[in-house]
C-alpha cells in the first residue's frame, strides 16, 4: 500500500504507512530506506537523512542507501561536512563503516574462538610453538582492534549520539533556553548532522562540525537510534 502510494506520488500517505510499520516496532533497513525516499521526495531533507542513517546502521554495505544518503546530504542548506574527530571516532569507524553492531559482535566472538583455539592447541601440542605464537599474536591483534572499535561505537552511541536537525531555521543559543534568555549564536537548517553532548530539560547541547556548538530545542532534532 505504501509502495503504491509512493508510485502515485502520494508521499504523505506513503510516509504515514511506512511510519506506522516502524512505530509498530518492526525493523528492516529497507523500511527505513523507503521511508527516507518518501521524505526526500516530499522535500523533508532532515527526516530523509535521518531514515537513511537508520537504514545504514542496519545495512552498512548497502550501496543504494549510501547513494541516496549522499544525494540527500548534497541537498542540505548548511553544507557542514561531518568529520570524524578524535581517536575514538576513527576507531569506531573501522567497523561502523561496513558492519552492523550485531555483525561486529559476531566477528568479535569468531576472533575470540579462533584465538582461544590457537592457544589451546599451542598448550596441548608442544611442537611448532613459533607458528602458534605468530597465529596467536595475529588473532589477538585483530581481536584488540575489533574490541576497541565496538567499545568505541557503544561509547559514542551512549555519550556522543548522532542527531539530525529536522526543523527549519533552528535557533542555536548559547545556553539551554530560548533566544532572549540566551544569545542567538546562529541558525541551522534541516539535515545538519551533529552529536548530542548533553540533555537539559527540553534542550540539547550539540557538537556540530567545524568545531561549532550550541543549544537547540529537543523538538528540532531527532536521534539516530533504532
Amino acid at each position: 500500500m505504501a509502495y503504491q502510494a509512493y508510485q502515485a506520488r502520494q508521499f504523505e500517505r506513503a510516509i504515514t504507512t511506512y511510519q506506522a510499520i516502524v512505530d509498530a516496532g518492526l525493523q528492516h533497513s529497507t523500511l527505513y530506506y523507503n521511508l527516507g525516499n518518501a521524505y526526500f521526495k516530499q522535500g523533508d531533507i532532515g527526516r530523509a537523512i535521518l531514515n537513511y542513517r537508520l537504514a545504514q546502521s542496519l545495512a552498512p554495505r548497502d550501496n543504494d542507501i549510501a547513494i541516496n544518503l549522499a544525494i540527500a546530504r548534497a541537498h542540505t542548506v548548511d553544507q557542514l561536512a561531518e568529520t570524524r574527530q578524535g581517536v575514538m571516532a576513527n576507531v569506531a569507524w573501522l567497523t561502523d563503516s561496513w558492519l552492523t553492531m550485531g555483525e561486529a559482535k559476531i566477528l568479535l566472538l569468531g576472533l575470540w574462538l579462533c584465538l582461544t583455539s590457537w592457544i589451546i592447541v599451542s598448550i596441548l601440542w608442544q611442537r611448532w610453538q613459533r607458528f602458534f605464537g605468530i597465529m596467536i599474536a595475529v588473532f589477538a591483534l585483530f581481536l584488540f582492534v575489533g574490541l576497541s572499535s565496538v567499545v568505541s561505537r557503544l561509547y559514542i552511541d551512549q555519550f556522543y549520539r548522532p542527531v539530525i536537525v529536522v526543523a527549519k531555521d533552528v535557533e542555536v543559543t548559547s545556553g539551554p533556553g530560548a533566544v532572549g534568555r540566551y544569545s542567538l549564536e546562529f541558525k541551522l537548517q534541516p539535515g545538519v548532522e551533529a552529536h548530542l553532548l548533553e540533555r537539559r530539560g527540553s534542550w540539547y547541547h550539540l557538537a556540530l562540525p567545524n568545531n561549532l556548538s550550541g543549544w537547540v530545542s529537543a523538538e528540532a532534532v531527532k536521534e539516530v537510534r533504532n
Binding site: 529497507t30 530506506y33 525516499n37 521526495k41 544525494i71
Partner: peptide, 9 residues
C-alpha cells in the same frame, strides 16, 4: 536520481 524503492521482505 535517487535510487528507487525496494520491496520489503
Amino acid at each position: 536520481d535517487i535510487r528507487p524503492l525496494k520491496p520489503i521482505p
